[in-house]
Design a protein around this nucleic acid. Structure first.
Lengths: 189, 189
DNA sequence: CCATCGAGTGATTGACCAGTCACTCACATC
DNA sequence: GATGTGAGTGACTGGTCAATCACTCGATGG
């Protein structure tokens, strides 16, 4: 039964809302331990209707992931545009800064971590490769940097994910400082 | 009922066997989507007995993770010993080579990836930090390299995990080559 | 030969969850 | 004001899984 007094919307608009909810919820608890009902609750929707909007759990996760990489690519593009000169190193630096800003709320970052772990599901692995290809190509083409610098850029991105996942930047200890040094991580949440 | 003709072993020996099984099985399907029964089957044990050996699923996973980092630390140590001279860069290089050999079967690598994703469980996050601390300290102390080189060492380790998870080294495409270039990844399986 | 203790299991329980289906309700148009 | 269509839901199902418990069996020592 439709909630009394609720105004109906189009299913396309609803789909967008659900994808946003999915990003937030999957980011917190990962793919396998997040029930569809949690996404539904966040989107203020019944669990059953989620299955009307998406054919299954996997495709919802993939939709969230696609949106995630789209946002990342957009941020990197903005970062590149922000650099004044054409020094590749400088452009990559600006891209890194833009990325750090984007993932300030950690949702997009954690979603990528969870996706990597769930990559034994082929659709998810494909989505990650698709996203990573987009990001890598973007970093290379817009910066004009040589391949090894682009590789380094991605590697330090991965390190950044590790630091954020484990909250290393808020933790005491020589070793944690070694890993976090100079990484432009955002303040938590 | 105990299997007819089976010789009993001590529970400590069994625990070791179960941890080995746990590494293999958790590495394939991750923490949340691996049932205890799968570990039990691999160890040729009843699911019920696993709970006699470990208080719960989490502590079994943590035991597997502890063992994983122990093996990694051991390999790195061997690698460091293998270097003839005392050039820090060269020592780190040997350590990387030793690591690449160790994770040839991908189990220890994937276990780390899954652990990072399951780090919202505090006991698991603690285990990962413990292991990473051990590895970082070892890399720094044994190589004598400056902090930024140690940081780079770990960052490229993370990149290596990403490449292996997504099978990038077997995939066509400019971008995949950019990320995989020069990484000493093992042959699959 | 009997008692004891640790190894190991079968059967069960209680919770949770992906996915389905028949249904109701709001809205637009004629 | 009848009617068709798409938004949205409640109730259910079949399956899975962590955890528990009462039990059996084998070995060891007196």
């Amino acid at each position: 039964m439709t909630k009394r007094g609720a105004t109906l919307s189009t299913s396309d608009a609803r789909r967008d809302v659900v994808v946003d909810a999915a990003i937030a919820v999957f980011a917190r608890s990962g793919y396998h331990s997040t029930p569809i009902s949690a996404v539904a609750a966040r989107a203020d929707i019944s669990p059953a209707y989620v299955f009307k909007l998406f054919p299954g759990k996997v495709s919802l996760f993939v939709a969230a992931l696609d949106r995630c990489y789209e946002l990342v690519a957009h941020a990197l593009s903005n970062g590149a545009a922000r650099a004044e000169n054409t020094d590749p190193e400088k452009i990559l630096y600006e891209m890194g800064g833009a990325y750090a800003e984007l993932i300030a709320d950690r949702n997009l970052l954690m979603l990528q971590v969870h996706a990597q772990s769930a990559a034994d599901t082929p659709e998810i692995a494909d989505a990650v490769r698709r996203g990573l290809a987009k990001v890598t190509d973007l970093a290379r083409d817009r910066s004009g940097a040589p391949d090894d610098q682009v590789q380094r850029f991605i590697a330090y991105g991965q390190l950044c994910h590790l630091i954020a996942t484990l909250d290393l930047d808020e933790r005491a200890g020589e070793w944690a400082a070694v890993l976090s040094a100079g990484i432009r991580h955002p303040g938590k949440k």
